[in-house]
Amino acid sequence: MAELTIERYRGAALQQFIPAVAALRIEVFRAFPYLYEGNEAYEAEYLQTYVDSPGAVVVIARDGEQVVGASTGLPLAAECEEFRRPFEEAGYPVDKIFYCAESVLQPSYRGRGIGVAFFDQRIAHARETGDFDWLTFCAVQRPETHPLRPADYQPLDRFWQKRGFTQAGGLTTEFSWQDVDQPEETAKPMQFWMRQMPAGDL
């Protein structure tokens, strides 16, 4: 196995990784609970947001030259309306919140602390680039009776709680994509999790 590296990229430096990150997102998000029927053109357009947004970051995990994981983040104020609106309606100062968007990691690399490093790197980026008081992300809500839910599925709630996040009561939204077993896009309920920006070193 080659050397495993975890590094932050911003702006034009990120451009070289877009095809690999797009393919990885399609691969990983196809599994439960997202069940995402991916589209390379959409993914490339979506990831371009992280190249173009001054406050955005993508953390790349590589085994040698192979991209095996990626984690995204940007100021909530730069996110789409579906993710900003619940906070605006609840009276939060959106410009004080950093959005830890998504993390994807090939299954064979899980359990090695890379997920923890993804959070640490995004928090460090938020601390260095803005004056943020809060961190947030959201997760899809699927019923326990969902027909494609694996019998051994383990939600990530405990992992997120160990990172200091708790479910934000009343802060929910909906976002649409096409499930692998559906003919068209449908809206999915999404629950936000939040924590205060940690003080000092992580």
Rank of each mutant, 00 (worst) to 15 (best):
Y46H: 14
A77Q: 11
T145P: 00
Y42C: 00
D133P: 03
D157I: 12
F159T: 10
E65T: 14
I114F: 15
E89N: 06
F165M: 09
V51R: 10
D120V: 11
I97Q: 07
F137P: 05
A117F: 05
Q154M: 13
P75D: 04
E81F: 13
Q121D: 08
E37S: 10
E89Y: 03
R149Q: 05
K96D: 09
R84D: 01
P147I: 08
R122E: 14
L76Q: 05
T49D: 11
P86G: 09
V94H: 07
I97W: 06
G169V: 11
F159G: 04
A70Y: 01
R127A: 14
F165I: 04
I114K: 00
L171R: 08
E40F: 06
E40D: 13
Y50V: 08
L135G: 03
A70K: 03
E45Y: 02
P107G: 09
R142S: 07
T166G: 06
E37D: 14
Y99Q: 04
Y36C: 02
T129Q: 15
W160S: 02
F83I: 00
A44K: 14
Y153Q: 09
E128A: 15
E45K: 13
E79N: 08
T173D: 02
C138Q: 10
C138Y: 02
W134C: 03
I60M: 09
A44R: 15
Y46L: 09
E128R: 13
V59R: 01
L148W: 12
R142G: 03
A126T: 07
A44V: 08
A90K: 11
D157M: 10
I97L: 07
T129N: 10
L148I: 03
V67S: 02
Q154V: 15
E102W: 00
L76V: 08
W160R: 07
I114R: 01
R127T: 10
Q121C: 13
G111S: 09
Y50S: 06
V104G: 01
D120A: 15
A41K: 11
E45L: 06
E45F: 03
W160E: 04
K96F: 02
